[in-house]
């Protein structure tokens, strides 16, 4: 499903969460929506899902989404907690809502996922642990099989093995049923291998939209003898450094020219792709105020 956002603004009283944002997603990819706390990720996704009337234009496959039955039926957004679940309802009842109200709902798959994540069907949502509630949100999102499926940090409450099970389930389901999936997360490196395209926002504005591989090529990890690494990176933009004994790894922002590549070879330095997380930190305002 294609997503077109044009001049989108979301305000809460005097606070502007999204400020005149425009971008397009061609669709049928797994997108990473990255941004610091309060950058506007949830507001953006809420507008994409028709949860609030947009100022500006939000179109899915060319159709406006807000209060448009044809478009809204193709969208599923699960935010931090499951929107589609009332805390007083049993898990089995939550799945019944999905089966009753969603044309694309796959109940057999939902039951498979419930079993995978070990969510008790007879327990009320309010009595589930944080991890189980997060997993239930993931079940609702994946089983919806919506052409536009959005997960807003919905896997953060899961423990590590469950998160890995979620990543496997997400990838397998995407391969079997290609669709547009947008995931916002702070666990960037864990998800990095799944992301095909990355959208970074900050302070309600679009910072960058890029293919993940292209984004990774914007920087280089330089590893080798600490003194050689220091010599090589002198004058370059170093995003971060790690040292172990006499070995040092430095994340360098910006592409390297032929001369620099030859010099790296001469010094015996290893060059590798940069971590998305380091690029993200660099591209958004760091806590210390240094960009």
């Amino acid at each position: 499903m294609r997503v077109d956002v044009q001049g989108l603004t979301v305000r809460y009283g005097d606070v502007t969460a999204i400020d005149d944002m425009s971008f397009s997603l061609s669709g049928n990819k797994i997108y990473g929506l990255l941004g610091r706390n309060g950058s506007g990720k949830t507001s953006l996704m809420s507008a994409l899902a028709g949860y609030r009337r947009p100022i500006g234009s939000v179109r899915l496959d060319g159709e406006p989404v807000f209060e448009n039955a044809a478009a809204m039926g193709k969208v599923c957004l699960v935010r931090h907690s499951a929107d589609a679940a009332d805390k007083g309802d049993k898990v089995s009842y939550v799945l019944e809502y999905g089966a009753a109200w969603r044309d694309t709902w796959d109940n057999a798959y939902a039951l498979d996922l419930v079993e995978l994540f070990k969510i008790p069907l007879k327990t009320k949502v309010g009595e589930l642990s944080l991890g189980q509630r997060s997993a239930l949100g993931v079940v609702i999102a994946l089983a919806s099989r919506s052409p536009l499926t959005m997960l807003d940090e919905s896997h953060l409450g899961m423990d590590t093995p469950t998160r890995y099970a979620f990543y496997d389930a997400l990838l397998n389901d995407f391969m079997a049923h290609p669709r547009t999936i947008i995931i916002s997360t702070h666990l960037i490196e864990e998800l990095a291998s799944l992301l095909e395209e990355v959208v970074i926002i900050d302070n309600g504005r679009l910072v960058l939209q890029e293919e993940a591989d292209v984004l990774r090529s914007r920087g280089t990890e330089v590893t080798g003898n600490a003194a050689d690494v220091d010599e090589f990176t002198a004058g370059l933009t170093v995003l971060s450094e790690r040292s172990l004994g006499r070995t040092k790894a430095a994340m360098v922002y910006g592409s390297l020219d032929d001369e620099q590549l030859i010099r790296a070879r001469q010094l015996g330095l290893e060059l590798g792709p940069i971590a998305l997380q380091d690029l993200f930190v660099h591209l958004t305002e760091p806590v210390g105020g240094k960009r």
Binding site: G50, E67, M72, G73, C76
Partner: peptide, 16 residues
């Protein structure tokens, strides 16, 4: 309070 948000979360419009 409880069911309208669930319906919207399942892709239904407020009007519906």
């Amino acid at each position: 309070h409880n069911l309208l948000p669930i319906a919207v979360a399942h892709g239904r419009t407020r009007r519906e």
